[in-house]
Design a protein around this nucleic acid. Structure first.
Lengths: 113, 113
DNA sequence: AGCTACTGCTACGATAAACGTAGCGATAGA
DNA sequence: TCTATCGCTACGTTTATCGTAGCAGTAGCT
């Protein structure tokens, strides 16, 4: 049974902002919609990257935000900090597989804006 | 050729926050990572919805934010305001098709948190 | 040993985004 | 006309993100 209090926190202490409706997809959207979160996953997909490399690829994201985001993504088990820098976990790669198709779609759509 | 100045604004005047790297996927991520953006698309997928219905389904999102988000999504042509309320455009449905698989994945993943 | 040049961060004040509540004008029904 | 709802807008407060500065740690020189 889902404890009512768990609505506000997910494993590792990462807080859920505002009131999601409690639906899993909304919890996921809440995590992914934090600044740079999807960009981080995207850029780690091909290979492990260092903090500063990641920062450069995320449009020079503020190191403070980048760091909190990396912490959160580590706490929910989507990325980990290995030898060659940050990299996706198995779960992270699963998620990325669903994100990947957006790349091609974006390449067609964005130029029409 | 991509005018350098276009990096900061997409059609309809919706501004791109911070410096994306200019890659289409980053522009898309920037749009989708605004608060409630993905939740809105998600909830409009099955049927048109009124402002207040949408608000309720998005965890009682602030009407001000919800309204700016709806404006932005309309300006980039992902949703429109029709007879029965807000609904996805053809483009919006295309995008949703790529978002949809995340629902099932989230249902398996989120409970493990 | 000392110097330089990196790295991954942390601190902190400034700015921007989101929140929450109140309420307005319009429409619909009793 | 009264009440209830709607789609919003206004506005003051809180939270998130930014941007710059800088520190400790490591590696490569001399």
């Amino acid at each position: 049974m889902t404890d009512i209090n768990r609505r506000s926190v997910v494993k590792g202490g990462v807080p859920v902002r505002g009131s999601t409706t409690g639906q899993p997809i909304m919890v996921l959207f809440d995590l992914l919609s934090r600044r740079w979160a999807m960009g981080i996953l995207w850029n780690l997909a091909s290979e492990p990257r260092t903090f500063r490399d990641l920062q450069a690829r995320c449009g020079l994201a503020s190191p403070s935000v980048l760091n909190t985001r990396l912490k959160e993504l580590r706490e929910v088990g989507l990325i980990k900090n290995g030898e060659g820098g940050y990299e996706l976990t198995a779960t992270g790669r699963e998620l990325f597989a669903h994100l990947e198709p957006l790349g091609d779609w974006a390449m067609e759509w964005v130029p029409t804006l």
